[in-house]
Design a binder for these strands. Structure first.
Length: 551
RNA sequence: GGCCUGUUGGAGAAGAGGCUUAACUCAUAUCCCUUUCAAGGAUACAUUCAUGGGUUCGAAUCCCGUACAGGUCACCA
């Protein structure tokens, strides 16, 4: 009569290592008390999701602030969904946000002593552990076909019982070693399942680092741990990898809460100490009055690349996400007058349990505050970098006259109450395009002069051209505008105009409006004085003359 | 359907039996300042904490039920 030992040998003849060997190979980390080992472990199935950035930011800061280790592991066990090169892309995008792993998978090879950091390269480890499990009767080959499984599920549905491979429904659970060996030798395809000793009627408790104690029904299903392609499932890989990589805190999406009993069941079977779990809430979006998870298909803001393409500084998104993670961050940043995330004391306990609605307004608010604090030279460099990556036209514009561009975006940014015009780099050009002669030419086709002002436009503009002072300080310039206005019947102050509206055509503000429309093509612009100084006398006169001619 | 988690303003949320007349921030509105816009300043915005009961001298805070929302039940993670 064959034993499980025989079965294990038949299944994994090439495995010579034992779990003890692995324990020695991956010793406990020598870290100070309280230091946390966290990880970000995505599957290479696409671009970085905003929720993933959120989770990785939390993992990263949690590890860093505790003096621990944050590493990156590639979970590439789903060969069907794997997208070539997306692992590299994920790392690249994370890097732009300053989330750089201490160890882990990189395109140029692994860094760190706990690798491989790519699940497809860890087969030997999984097989070693599973061999041991088989030997101990805690894992077994299951020969069910997908059709068999469907049939089981159909019965369960009909009987309104819980779906799953458990108890009497676990068809191959109680096969003898002989029967198993016989089928394997006959070449019947199989997967390896975990042999659960759990009791569904019992409850298991665990302490979530965010939510506190969670009580769930114990796992009693024999989940598959090794797929027919020889790769492990998530459940098993998580238990194995996080054990041998010595992760202390699992940060993962809240959708994993219901399967935690499976993981705990396996940790129990292996006699390993389970890590701490922190289930991170997902970022939500309002859709027809209902909350739902940010969806990559429906919501552009679900992809981190969207924010990069729009030209949000990376710290804007990070700061926004931190304000969701720990709502006291905002007050902290106001009192300390800084957005430096590394100085903020992050706490898992302060996280809220339900997912926040993604709030573009709030992001924009933070981003304006952040951009206005960037010194002009650095801002310039950043916009250039953005243009190089995303906007060829803007790049040409900037390079045609860098100093000119720099002045145009710097208007009134140095004041105590600075202008906060830009939430993202994409906002910049539309606001300053009138500075460029060709754009201005396009705009003058239809100028928003008010009808009541039109009769005075020509004379006013001509006089501005001849008599307005340039190259002087703002109040001197402004006085000259007032004088010209007065000569044409415009009150030199709004108060005078309001007192005797019948005596005037309008007030200085109307004069300024005429000037503004002519020069900038719009009735809303930053400080006219600054605009005129940047454009220079020659261009100002040219514009005034050209518009005057049209009247 | 079973199980789990959650429910405080338009949004993020403080709050942990009396310090709450429910903090703070964003958004919105109005006013002030002002040559437009932006910025800034001021004010307004939950008689009430999903809902119904209960405990208590006292509840957003504790207990029970109900409703609603989200998650999960794969050889996907």
């Amino acid at each position: 009569m064959a034993t499980n030992e025989d079965l294990a040998e038949l299944l994994f003849p090439d495995v010579t290592k034992t779990i003890e060997d692995l324990e020695r190979e991956y010793p406990l980390r020598n870290l100070p008390e309280g230091a946390q080992v966290t990880r970000f472990a995505p599957s290479p199935t696409g671009f970085l999701h905003t929720g993933s950035l959120f989770t990785s930011m939390i993992s990263y800061t949690y590890a860093k602030q505790s003096g621990g280790v944050y590493y990156f592991r590639l979970e590439d066990t789903d060969t069907k969904r794997t997208i070539e090169g997306s692992g590299e892309l994920l790392i690249e995008q994370l890097k732009q946000f300053g989330i750089i792993a201490d160890e882990g998978y990189t395109p140029d090879g692994d860094i760190g002593a706990y690798g491989p950091y790519q699940q497809s390269k860890r087969k030997d480890i999984y097989r070693t552990v599973i061999k041991e499990l088989v030997r101990r009767g805690r894992a077994y080959p299951d020969f069910c076909t997908p059709e068999d499984l469907d049939a089981i599920r159909a019965i369960q549905e009909a009987k309104k019982e819980l779906p799953g491979y458990y108890g009497v429904y676990a068809r191959d659970r109680n096969l003898t070693a002989d029967e198993r060996i016989e089928r394997i030798k006959a070449g019947v395809p199989y997967v390896i399942r975990f042999y659960s000793l759990g009791d569904h009627e019992r409850k298991v408790k665990f302490n979530d680092a965010i939510r506190g104690e969670i009580e769930l029904q114990d796992n009693d299903t024999d989940v598959v741990i090794l797929k027919s392609d020889g790769l492990p499932t998530y459940h098993f890989a998580h238990v194995c990898d996080d054990h041998f990589m010595r992760t202390t805190c699992i940060t993962r999406g809240e959708e994993w809460i219901p399967s935690t009993p499976i993981h705990l069941d396996m940790f129990r079977a292996l006699g390993w100490k389970p890590p701490k779990y922190a289930h991170i809430p997902s970022i939500m979006k309002l859709d027809n009055g209902n909350r739902r998870k940010l969806s990559k298909r429906k919501d552009p803001e679900a992809a981190v690349s969207y924010f990069l393409d729009e030209g949000y500084p990376t710290e804007s998104l990070l700061v926004y996400l931190m304000s969701i993670a720990n709502s006291n961050f905002e007050e902290w940043s106001i009192t300390t007058k800084t957005f430096d995330l590394s100085k903020f004391k992050f706490s898992l306990k302060k996280m809220s349990f339900d997912g926040a609605l993604f709030d573009q307004d709030k992001l924009n608010y933070f981003s304006k505050e952040i951009i206005v604090r960037i010194p002009i030279d650095e801002l310039y460099d950043r916009v250039v970098a953005f243009a190089k990556a995303h906007d060829e036209f803007l790049l040409q514009r900037i390079q045609s006259n860098p100093e000119f561009f720099k002045k145009a975006i710097n208007i009134d940014r140095d004041k105590p109450n600075p202008r906060k015009d830009f939430a993202k780099y994409k906002d910049i050009y539309p606001r300053i395009r009138f500075f460029y002669a060709d754009e201005w030419e396009k705009m003058v086709e239809s100028l928003p002069f008010r009808d009541t002002l039109r009769p005075y436009v020509k004379e006013l503009l001509l006089d501005f051209k001849d008599k307005m002072l340039l190259g002087v300080d703002e109040s001197t310039w402004w006085n000259s505008v007032k004088e010209i206005g007065e000569a044409h019947g415009f009150a030199s102050s709004n108060k005078d105009f309001k007192l005797n509206p019948e005596k005037y055509h309008g007030s200085v503000s109307d004069c300024a409006e005429v000037l503004r429309v002519a020069i900038t093509g719009t009735d809303q612009s930053p400080s006219l004085h600054a605009v005129l100084e940047i454009l220079g006398k020659e261009e100002v006169c040219r514009r005034l003359e050209e518009i005057a001619k049209k009247f």
